[in-house]
Amino acid sequence: MNLLAVNDLDLRIARTGQTLLRDVTVSIERGSIVGLVGESGSGKSMFSLALMGLLPTGIEVTGGTAEVAGQPVFRGASHSYDTATRDRIALVSQNPRAALNPTMRIGKQMVRVLRERHRMGKVEARDEARELLRKVGISDPTRVERAYPHQLSGGMCQRVVIAMALSVKAPVLIADEPTTGLDVTIQAQILLLLKELMADGDRAVLMVTHDLAVVSSMCDQVIILYGGQVMEVGPTRDIFLDPVHPYTRFLLESLEDHVPSADDIGDRVTEASVDFSITGCRFAKRCPFSTELCHREPPPVRRSGARTVHCHHRGAS
């Protein structure tokens, strides 16, 4: 069953009408980790913010639908955010220290969240908080409980944030660049932790990242995003072994592990910033295969089994 189902989501800057996200469709089944991959400016962070109702002023949802565990996220013609959604999605973000209240001890913050969400008593909440800290691999919860965020390392803070996210007991977890800025050894610890927490199969996880290696190791499915538009979707293995969309191929070719071959198109992709005023495909300006049609018309969705490619010319094989 799809715990997260987003269809044709449109996001715009209210003042200029510029579209930041266009026709974005994402669906995640229970027990699955889906990676949303994009470079800077792709709109991937805006996507998480939209689902959490945390968009900055001036940016609005103008089209599409979204459902979490069957419940709609946006209501009415104005697509206003239903705040009950926050009970159903938990967010783990980049920069864990920024997600914690710097003036409050960790234990107090967690107890507060638990008591508000689940109407727990003080003692019950404290025990639950300790249990959650243990669950995220903190072997000495009492020490962490009494600490302030600035006294903990980045990796430790991120574990605490994950513990707090778990405490919400939400069916959907969004991890938005959860390991960016952390050391690589700590990153491995956090990724392993996330993977282990997924093992009980109750949740759906959306992992938003720019790091293809992380996606390759963590995600069952990949969504490639460029300029606010979905380019390609498919099972991880298929996408990496047989990329179809020119942008996907370009991304994979730029990996250090890539063995150069005659089929490479990377050199033919021009370097340019995203042009949000194009009515057609957002990648058209840089794509070696683009035609006038590509600039004019949004690309159709070509489906083939579990894969979809949004392109006028390269169909899913």
Partner: peptide, 11 residues
Amino acid sequence: MTTATVPVSAR
């Protein structure tokens, strides 16, 4: 830092 920012034209 790779941040999703407001597009160039808005700047």
